[in-house]
Design a protein around this nucleic acid. Sequence first.
DNA 1: ATGCAACCTCAAGCTAAGTTGAGGTCAAGC
DNA 2: GCTTGACCTCAACTTAGCTTGAGGTTGCAT
Lengths: 146, 146
Amino acid sequence: MPKANFITIGHLSKRTGVAVSALRFYEEKGLLHPLRTGGNQRRFLKSDIRRVSFILIAQKLGLGLAEIEEHLAQLPEGRNPTLTDWQKISRAMREQIDEKIRLLNRTRNQLDQCIGCGCLSLAKCQLYNKDDQLGLKGPGPRAVLD
Amino acid sequence: MPKANFITIGHLSKRTGVAVSALRFYEEKGLLHPLRTGGNQRRFLKSDIRRVSFILIAQKLGLGLAEIEEHLAQLPEGRNPTLTDWQKISRAMREQIDEKIRLLNRTRNQLDQCIGCGCLSLAKCQLYNKDDQLGLKGPGPRAVLD
DNA sequence: ATGCAACCTCAAGCTAAGTTGAGGTCAAGC
DNA sequence: GCTTGACCTCAACTTAGCTTGAGGTTGCAT
């Protein structure tokens, strides 16, 4: 059997295009769980390439690392994830995209109304009083959001 | 003529729901340009209420303050913006939303393909090699994006 | 057995979008 | 004319998602 099931962090970096420092950061955040050699160097599974790929895609979709970790937690620890495993969480992500698209569409319609009436006024405008979030993350104007 | 065309920062805060500290921050970033009294206190125009409203809406749409500033720069300095002024930049924003929706749709379709083939593999997956951005901002994995 | 690239940790720095607090000033009502 | 709440500046802190650098170790090839 091929003993080279393990790859170094540099290798993983090259295969995914993600900086070594970022990979270490992902480990720190619990998104990756490499083994260690006797000399304390990380050894990743080949399937971690796919795992990192997933992280990148999910980030493109606007998910935060914490959310991504939750998705990844669905994957089996230890054994290599199967096609079915990946399909399951991909499907869950599709739902999230759909939700985002719905929200954007709703917001666009409301903006259309605002263009019409020129309101942009706090009291009346639907854009304020309804529908939060929209993938908004980080601090932001708390008084409005909380 | 009504001399009370000016409002204090506290008043603006109450009318918009935005914290005083945030308003000062927006000024620092060039999004607001209040006048000053002899005693160095800020005095805003009433039309700044609308200006702040716009900032809030644009943030909901995922724009950063820098981008928002560019939009606001379209507004006439000095005179109060007219309905037409506001409609012009609202329409420009609509384009941006439409673009975001288009990108999300494209990504979703590609994800659907990935679900089918189970790929998620860097070499093949469309999700990587095509179509950047998607509203992605901040540092992020540079190697992939630059 | 030695050289050197690639690895390690830990601390500090960066951007965005603010908040919090200290210490001081302004202006409006009584 | 004085008190008091609203205002001022400036510096430091926050979270996310990293990067950069210093200083030290590993492991593979020769």
